[in-house]
Design a protein around this nucleic acid. Structure first.
Lengths: 198, 198
DNA sequence: GTCTATAGACCGATAGAC
DNA sequence: GTCTATCGGTCTATAGAC
């Protein structure tokens, strides 16, 4: 299968992608602030100093991680098609769930970012831009009459993608079949658009 | 009106409730781990040492905060009534939203706890117990035929309360009328049980 | 590419005066 | 109830050898 972990040329030892993957895992398990470069070194079987050969700083690791999540979410939205705003919205919800499951560690970390450092502020700015695109889709779908008009479109948008994002609290990695994400996305669109009642 | 902030006898200066309220606010703004006792002291206009006259430790502040949220959620669930499981579930959703809005800072902090300290582990244990009670309600409502049976009851439960909990990401304090929480709770139950479609 | 050693800053918490 | 001063520990990051 194709290498998802980026360039690795001949030499033994670790590369940036391997360090990043372990870092994201650790940040999600312990929290970013509570995870020291010493913790990361121990998990990698390295010393702290060796890590700094691969990444510039601890904050750079966070930046690389949230960029992975944001790039994936933006690309997925760019690829959304559909004849009507309603169909585009359903496709956007579906695509968001799939990205969330496929990039679960990075997206989980992204959704836990609430801080005030420049890296986190920039991540929040990009997240708000994505939210705005989705809110536009909801507004358009309400305007065409496909969605109920007795709820504020911005409220609908926030609830809809709050529902999607809440998946990171309990979804665990796929078992490899590759069908979990699609089935989960289908269940969520069913609940959101058709409701819970029998 | 009644004092929500606990005992404050004659003396000038701060009390534990005042320190806790500012601490929760700061923990939510900066993150628990990134907020130092020095930060909290500056926000209070005190020195670090003075804080330790009111609370035993930084972790004790976290413990007090999550206990406020958990106590409120448990009490709200205890008070839920209704003739059928379906009606009890709708009441539980409504009550959860109201508690979340009324205790927004404490509940926000609770939902951001994912660490491994004893205080956090205990908070997660109580949260899971609450989740289990709600999952039981969902299962019962599915059994009576009130809720659709083509979705796994545990999935329904997770999505339903993921939806409710996602409110902490954007809800801001009430303007004092006291009606916001009820109207918000009504909108959420509408979306969850009736769906988005027109 | 990894190591040992350490600089320099900040942390949580305490002692003891007022 | 608040202060000044400080202890012992941990943190990110760097210097320089191999």
């Amino acid at each position: 299968m194709s290498s998802v972990t980026g360039p690795r040329r001949g030499r033994p030892g670790h590369d940036q992608s391997a360090v990043l993957a372990v870092a994201i895992q650790l940040f999600n398990r312990q929290g970013y602030d509570r995870t020291s470069m010493g913790d990361l070194a121990r998990e990698l079987g390295l010393t702290k100093s060796a890590i700094y050969h691969h990444v510039e700083s601890k904050e750079a690791l966070l930046s690389l991680a949230v960029d992975e999540a944001l790039d994936a979410l933006e690309s997925a939205l760019d690829a959304v098609g559909g004849a009507t705003p309603y169909e585009q919205l359903r496709a956007a919800v579906h695509a968001s769930v799939v990205v969330l499951v496929e990039h679960l560690p990075a997206v989980t970390l992204l959704l836990r970012v609430h801080g005030n450092t420049p890296v986190e502020q920039e991540a929040l700015r990009r997240r708000r831009a994505i939210d705005a695109r989705l809110a536009d889709l909801v507004r358009a779908a309400v305007t065409t009459g496909a969605l109920r008009a007795d709820l504020d479109p911005q409220l609908i948008s926030r609830l809809l993608f709050g529902l999607v994002n809440s998946l990171v609290e309990w979804v665990r990695p796929e078992d490899g079949t590759g069908h979990d994400a699609d089935r989960l996305a289908a269940a969520i669109t069913t609940l959101a658009f058709d409701g819970l009642e029998a």
